[in-house]
Design a protein around this nucleic acid. Structure first.
Lengths: 263, 263
DNA sequence: CAAAAGCGTTTTACATGCAAAACAAACTTG
DNA sequence: CAAGTTTGTTTTGCATGTAAAACGCTTTTG
């Protein structure tokens, strides 16, 4: 995975490798044995033993039903949810996203930009229709989705150019921008309209409306979006209902974050 | 917090302390500085520096707006959700919990026993009424809630006695059992009825129906429960509607887990 | 405004975490 | 069923991570 720049005197190798053990166990399909973990990390079994010993005694990993195999322990959950709950936008937006879901009867989501990726912080699933797989904690490439364009709409052209630099943009659908210029056009459209409506931009058969959320300094810090299968979308009411309602919810959240600028 | 039995030759102190840094940052109200972290862990600043240096370069923590203060980084989310998604019962139960929520129009939850605690793995909120605060990842004391009694209903009296041993049971409400014998009565009731209906057992003004979920070996591995404010509960239909529907959902999940026993 | 206290960082002698080798037990396998 | 592999675990000498002390720097404070 990520190759480690070990060559710093300040690095704590034990910590680095222990966390990699957790990530490997997290990415694994099932329980792993000591040897498997050691092999996956190109580490001697004796070292793997010490890491596992430590993690096990701290309850960060636990032995699976099958002896001598390990899975992630429940203690890692605390870390993840601590992070979620520390993001102010998560808790602030929750009631608004739920209300929006109830009003327009389509799934609603909150996301932020994390590096090159869109990170989903929370979802409120529609009651009916098929359930979107955009669960909390999921990540997608920012350049490839309408939500990503929303979150990037705050960047200047220079920053956007920088963002694209070490990015190999592959086309998921015909709508995916694969060059900086193409992406710039999408982002510019968001800047002007204040929202994106997309139909099949990322997933064929799925439609979405995305609106940026701003904080007290006016920066885009998150994105509210609604999404559902084309079958559940009333396309005649996009402009008159979905967009204004989503914009209104995003603005309410922005206001709670201290945003004082224009709607 | 948890005092560490350092005195093992196999312990990797760097890993242990690095994880404690993450937990301390997770429990903290806001960003912390290097010195604050060092003080919280009774660690020299130089050691704290090395841990923070490592965690920062791995994106497990990140610098906050204020210079030289740190918060949890988004990378910890991966660990938490990897754990959630690895629990088979989480994904299996999701559609059933959603369907149950839609049918009975009350919030539904899934939980498991983790040590002494009930750990909530997933929730599906009711559309109307007040939103329960039982968010995913939350923990509560098992002895003190109807859900806990459900999850404990698989334990023999001896195991239950062991469970109570180093547990100081304090009364949250008049219904909270504060002795082993009192708890045994509650658990026995679940064993016989196969469900618990509770009204104000843990939270005054809140009602709940909880039903155990079993796996292929017949063991209780999780608990399905519905809950809502008394105002949203139709008490006349508890026996004729809520209980049978919740039991049916729990049984469907149990069947998917390979449970072959009687309903 | 100077002294003092606090901060993040760097250095360095020393203690100690680490990986290779050795070990015993549990599997394969010809 | 015995030779050979692979497993989890223990040992041990050497390399290396570590904490105290030292270092600038900023922020209090009298």
């Amino acid at each position: 995975m990520t190759e480690s720049p070990n060559h710093s005197v300040y690095f704590v190798p034990g910590l680095q490798r222990g966390l990699r053990v957790l990530e490997i166990l997290g990415a694994a399909a099932g329980p792993m044995s000591l040897s498997e973990i050691g092999r996956a990390m190109e580490l001697s079994r004796s070292s793997a033993f010490r890491l596992i010993y430590t993690l096990r005694h701290m309850d960060f990993i636990k032995e699976a039903e099958q002896k001598n195999t390990y899975t992630l322990g429940a203690r890692v959950l605390n870390l993840g949810f601590a992070y979620l709950n520390q993001q102010p936008v998560t808790s602030i937006s929750r009631p608004y996203l739920a209300a929006l879901r109830d009003k327009i009867e389509v799934s609603t989501h909150l996301s932020v930009l994390e590096g090159e990726e869109v990170l989903y912080l929370g979802s409120h699933q529609a009651r009916s229709g098929f359930v979107s797989n955009m669960a909390t904690g999921t990540r997608t490439q920012a350049y490839a989705s309408a939500i990503g364009w929303c979150l990037l709409s705050d960047l200047s052209d220079e920053e956007l150019s920088l963002f694209c630099e070490d990015l190999d943009m592959v086309a998921f659908t015909d709508h995916t921008p694969t060059t900086f210029e193409a992406l710039k056009v999408r982002v510019q459209a968001v800047r002007e309209a204040g929202y994106v409506f997309s139909q099949g931009f990322r997933d064929p058969g799925g439609s979405s409306v995305a609106v940026p959320v701003r904080d007290n300094s006016g920066n885009v810090v998150a994105c509210v979006n609604i999404s559902g299968p084309d079958s559940g979308f009333d396309f005649d009411r996009v402009d008159t209902f979905y967009v204004p309602e989503t914009k209104a919810a995003a603005l309410k959240i922005s206001r709670e974050l201290g945003y004082a600028g224009p709607a």
